[in-house]
């Protein structure tokens, strides 16, 4: 019981800390800090997406950057068409986040459905490799497609808009991202507690047993994979707006690795695991990146320690192992 209380306390601390520091920064003229925390929120959101596939379903996707990058391109491409007035596929572009987000999510979901339909027939190392291969295919396609910037990526001159807010102001963009993050955490919590989540987590542990109960593991995993891709795609759209740039690098395998690192450091399958992981990763980069060029070496050592000695990430370190009830 004590562990559960500690986890609640940690979650509250992370959610509020993530909100209060930027508020402090707002009144103390530190826009860089706000941008940093916006990045944490967006990476955490992308991590929540992956946490559904990897944490709940045990699907180690090494290609989740593809949805992250796709979401970014949706934001960039729709903004560009809104900017120059040219229609895309017969429809006008838009600079409204509330339209861009659903488009990014639907396209990411469709892509995840296609990739999942192939890759979920395999498991283990094959699954990892196939998801990586699909993501790299899309990455090279983006790099070689000149219409939307190719290798150089696609700048977003004016950030896409959210009704009632000025997203060009760092704090107002942050609030949007923080709000979306909280909603996504709610969605994750609902899924994990639901019948669907019960089947999904059981499939992670023993797919043969679940099949023998009459639940088809493939269908459940595919649905989870699609939801997972959608949330990571949404995060990608936000990241493109934050950096005002849709970049093919967001699709690269290194980004897929970064998302996995966030999950493992934060706590696989834990509600606030991605938040803790993203905060740690960004904090580590800012702190040690200022001290040494070789900060990634130290990050590697931390990761090694986390995998060898801790397993459950930051959340488990503070709140103990997860009990599924």
């Amino acid at each position: 019981m004590a562990d559960i209380k500690r986890e609640y306390a940690l979650n509250a601390l992370l959610a509020l800390g993530l909100l209060l520091v930027p508020i402090w920064a707002l009144y103390n003229g530190a826009p860089f800090t706000i941008t940093l925390f916006t990045r944490i929120a967006i990476l955490a959101l992308a991590g929540i997406g992956l946490n559904i596939a990897l944490g709940l379903g045990g699907m180690v996707s090494f290609g989740h950057a593809v949805y992250f990058g796709l979401g970014g391109y949706v934001a960039g491409i729709l903004a560009q068409h809104a900017f120059n007035g040219a229609p895309i596929l017969g429809l006008p572009g838009t600079n409204q986040m509330l339209i861009i987000w659903p488009v990014a999510m639907v396209l990411s979901g469709l892509l995840a459905a296609v990739i999942g339909a192939f890759s979920l027939r395999t498991s283990g190392i094959f699954f990892i490799m196939i998801t990586l291969a699909f993501a790299q295919m899309v990455y090279y396609f983006a790099v070689s497609w000149p219409a939307y910037g190719g290798e150089d990526g696609l700048p977003i001159y004016v950030r896409n808009q959210f009704p009632g807010l000025n997203t060009m102001r760092p704090f107002e963009l942050f609030i949007v991202c923080w709000g979306v993050l909280m909603l996504a955490l709610g969605v994750f919590a609902l899924i994990r507690a639901s019948r669907f989540g019960a089947a999904l987590m059981a499939i992670r542990q023993n797919p043969d047993r679940v099949a023998s109960l009459g639940i088809n593991p493939f269908g459940v995993k595919l649905a989870a994979f699609v939801i997972s891709g959608m949330i990571t795609g949404l995060a990608g759209a936000l990241m493109a707006d934050l950096s005002r740039f849709a970049s093919p690098a967001a699709m690269a395998w290194t980004m897929s690795g970064e998302l996995i690192v966030i999950i493992i450091l934060g706590g696989t399958g834990r509600l606030f695991g991605p938040v803790a992981g993203a905060a740690f990763l960004v904090g580590f980069e800012v702190f040690f990146g200022g001290l040494t060029e070789h900060w990634k070496l130290w990050l590697g050592l931390v990761l090694l320690a986390a995998v060898l000695f801790n397993r459950g990430g930051i959340v488990a370190l503070i709140a103990g192992r997860e009990r599924l009830g």
Partner: peptide
């Protein structure tokens, strides 16, 4: 409970906490 859930055929429900 998982077996009972499978028997009912309701594994694509996302909202109600099963526990």
């Amino acid at each position: 409970m998982l077996a009972l859930q499978a028997r009912q055929g309701h594994s694509f429900r996302f909202l109600m906490p099963v526990m």
